[in-house]
Design a protein around this nucleic acid. Structure first.
Length: 779
DNA sequence: GAGCACTGC
């Protein structure tokens, strides 16, 4: 038998039904039965007798316990052996045989494992020894929802396998590909694998794909799961493992056509749960009270308190600190806030030790961490013994009617509550104080948080699915199908942007748009920008819009911060202001001190620069010219006008008109909105485009730029088919303009063109003047 | 005259 042929068999051992009666080890020609192996390994090689897809747990373990690392032929290190001993004690290790049995006989396996089971590090290694991807030029992928997890788990596994990180084991995340030709086990973010699928729809580089943390139900994981169902129909050599925490296991199993399920217990300590006897009317006050109470009466051990946002957290920290300092008979405390926008240095402080007692035999000191949801999944703090759970978190919601995503403080789910309480039992038995009644937990909390796909604007998702070749979205097998209206909104958006034609098919423009890792609107303006001679500038603006706010505003230095910002302010709007800041930052030599002096966030600017580099790469790959108009600093001069026109090509649906009353109305939905107070726009602009609709006590539009009605009609004539628009002054202005244009073109035939144009300019001006006077009067 | 839960490409 030729080597090539046996290799083919080895990749897809189940293809030959006639050999099914034989024990697995005899099914592969060139396998153990014939005393050979398919890859020409020397007979004394540790893997010489391995048969792909038919190995045993004992074989794998023996190879791990040998003298030489079979993957790089180097002797195992001392450190390796030490780590190996620890790995053997992980709960998942007892299930190696069971797991191999399942994965060898099924294409999809669901694996349920609680924290501390070792599934994320061990399961991929079990598969490596069974799949031997290295010897067939394939890889095993293991996805994580978060970058940090992908990196740190890869690092850990590289150590466990005694290889250099980035060689046999690596990770791949945005901005950082730490893999090589040799890499056969690759941790990566779920978004990264999805992006790869857009260019390789069958994910042919992989022999196995492990979707970890599937219970998180991120947008990317959800799409990947749907995609896996499609791919396995076409690739029977692909193995899929879906790993999740306990609660949803049945749902995953059902979704994957009753794939077998394996459960692995975790290794955590028991946590006692306490409920309040009556509902709390003020959770914040109750939370602070509980923290102080624990501090006064309970044994040593740190406290973790979950709240919903920055302001609430800083407030609570101050109050807890002030009150506990006044307790005469309690130990000292350190109180730390924790949320994602906190600078990394401040975030690291949560790992400091609790303070020592004031006197050698005094009450113990205590650390109290007050955190958002970030401590529920992304960050773990060892040493937490007491958890306080008020039962709320801020969650994203999408309202397709007004096409707005917003953040809402909402009750958490049972799954979240369990996750939170589990944080108390990582190092020893703990206690969790739930600030709601047991009845509320049982009857009012939903089982699991709604997956992101049900709470998001799906513009990007639909574009990605189309690019993945999924034409029929209605019949795509979503684990939780989004509301039809939400899908409609997305299709409509993409159609107006020109990404989909009227039949819903991806256009060439849409295919290019999907390549860019930004919102469809921003992708559109990037692609259009060379036509307006300003792709360099649009790349900068898009990058700045893809990072958190750069402007710092410390509560005690607001005035100075505002003055610093005023230096960059552009009279025609915030997009141009962002451009100014970026330029100033680059001119400063990317200087950290400059950022500090000018109240700009250094990290944010740095990451905007990173994003810009990436966008530039994509622009070049798509053959889009990188150009700028000659600079002139006149606000309405051609340089800035070109940029504003290019912005309009992506934002024409996010446009508001200033009515005579002085307030703005969104043109499509007639929502009354106000310019966000942070806006730099310094005059009453009749038409503005906006980046973001912020829904709080008021409706704000944030990051706005003045545009002209003419541009709107120029860039999106199809969109401004005004019959479908609600009545408002803005609509009437556009109608007039359209009329004028029509009569303009017909009168041209009759030779009245010039006169007509003059007339229309005049009436246009007087309209605007009147509006402006009106709005001034109101103020 | 005011906020930004958390991720990700």
């Amino acid at each position: 038998m030729s080597e090539a042929k046996s290799q083919k068999r080895a990749e897809a051992p189940k293809e030959n039904p006639y050999l099914a009666h034989l024990p697995p080890s005899e099914r592969l020609v060139g396998g153990a039965a014939s005393g050979k192996n398919p890859y020409g390994l020397a007979p004394n090689h540790p893997l010489a007798n391995f048969v792909i897809g038919a190995t045993t747990a004992e074989q794998g373990e023996a190879a791990e316990e040998g003298d030489v690392n079979p993957f790089n032929n180097k002797p195992f290190s001392e450190k390796y052996r030490k780590i190996l001993a620890g790995r053997r004690k992980l709960p998942v290790n007892k299930h190696r045989k069971e797991f191999l049995n399942l994965i060898q006989n099924n294409q999809v396996v669901i694996l349920v494992g609680e924290t501390g089971s070792g599934k994320t590090t061990q399961i991929p290694q079990f598969m490596v020894f069974d799949e031997l991807p290295a010897f067939k030029g394939k890889k095993i992928a293991c996805t994580q929802p978060r970058r940090l997890a992908a990196m740190s788990v890869a690092q850990r596994v590289a150590e466990e396998m005694d290889v250099v990180m980035g060689q046999e084991v690596g990770y791949n995340i945005r901005f950082e590909d730490c893999t090589s030709e040799k890499t056969f086990l690759q941790y990566m973010t779920d978004g990264m694998l999805l992006r790869e699928a857009m260019n390789d729809p069958l994910l042919s580089r992989y022999s196995a794909i492990i979707l970890d943390e599937a219970h998180d139900r991120t947008l990317s994981t959800d799409i990947l799961m749907g995609l896996m169902k499609e791919i396995i129909k076409k690739r029977d050599d692909l193995k899929v493992v879906v790993m999740s925490a306990t609660l949803d296991a049945g749902k995953f199993q059902k979704y994957f056509d009753n794939a077998p399920l394996m459960s692995v217990p975790g290794r955590t300590f028991p946590v006692e749960i306490y409920y309040t006897p009556e509902p709390e009317s003020d959770y914040l006050e109750a939370a602070i009270f509980t923290a102080l109470q624990i501090h006064r009466t309970e044994d040593a051990g740190d406290i973790l308190l979950f709240l919903t946002g920055e302001e609430e957290i800083e407030d609570a920290c101050r109050k807890i600190k002030a009150e506990s300092d006044q307790m005469p008979d309690a130990g000292p405390v350190k109180v730390f806030p924790l949320y994602s926008t906190l600078p990394p240095q401040a975030q690291k402080r949560i790992y400091e030790d609790a303070p020592p007692p004031k006197t050698p035999d005094g009450r113990p000191g205590r650390k109290i961490v007050v955190s958002t949801n970030i401590a529920e999944t992304s960050l773990t703090i060892d040493g937490i013994v007491y958890v306080i759970d008020p039962g709320f978190s801020k969650q994203k919601v999408y309202n397709p009617r007004i096409r707005v995503e917003s953040l809402l403080v909402s009750p958490i789910s049972k799954a979240s509550a369990q996750q939170r309480s589990g944080r108390a039992g990582r190092t020893r038995p703990g206690k969790c104080f739930r600030l709601y009644t047991e009845n509320a937990f049982m009857k009012e909390l939903i089982e699991t948080t709604y997956p992101e796909i049900l709470r998001s604007n799906l513009g990007t998702v639909v574009l990605q699915l189309k690019k993945l070749g999924i034409d029929d979205l209605v019949h795509f097998d979503f684990m939780d199908p989004p509301a039809p209206e939400t899908l409609m909104r997305a299709l409509e958006l993409l159609n107006y942007l020109g990404a989909l034609d009227d039949d819903g098919n991806l256009t060439p423009l849409g295919a290019t748009m999907a390549d860019f890792p930004v919102d469809p609107q921003l992708a559109k303006m990037l692609i259009a920008s060379p036509q307006y001679g300003c792709s360099n500038e649009i790349m900068t603006i898009v990058s700045m819009l893809n990072v958190p706010l750069v402007f710092l505003r410390p509560p005690d230095q607001r005035k100075m911060a505002d003055e610093a910002k005023a230096q960059f302010a552009h009279p025609d709007g915030d997009h141009l202001t962002l451009l100014n800041v970026y330029h100033a930052y680059k001119t400063s030599g990317e200087d950290q001190k400059w950022c500090y002096d000018n109240f700009c966030n250094f990290r944010t600017l740095k990451s905007a620069d990173n994003v810009r580099t990436q966008l530039k790469r994509y622009m070049e790959r798509c053959d889009l010219d990188l150009v700028s108009l000659p600079f002139d600093d006149k606000p309405k001069g051609p340089y800035y006008t070109g940029i504003r026109k290019a912005l309009t090509t992506g934002y024409f649906m996010q446009v508001a008109h200033q009515e005579r009353s002085g307030s703005y109305l969104t043109v499509k939905d007639n929502q009354v909105v106000r310019l966000h107070p942070s806006s730099c726009l310094d005059h009453a602009a009749e038409w503005v485009i906006y980046n973001e609709f912020v829904l709080t006590n008021q409706n704000y539009i944030r990051t706005v730029t003045e545009v002209k009605a003419e541009w709107l009609l120029d860039v999106a004539p199809n969109y401004f088919d005004l019959d479908s628009f609600p009545n408002c002054e803005g609509k009437r202005v556009l109608e007039k303009l359209i009329m004028r244009r029509k009569s303009g073109s017909s009168s041209r035939e009759r030779g009245y063109e010039e006169e007509d144009r003059k007339k229309s300019r005049k009436s246009d001006r007087s309209d605007r003047d009147r509006d402006r006077k009106d709005s001034k009067r109101r103020r």
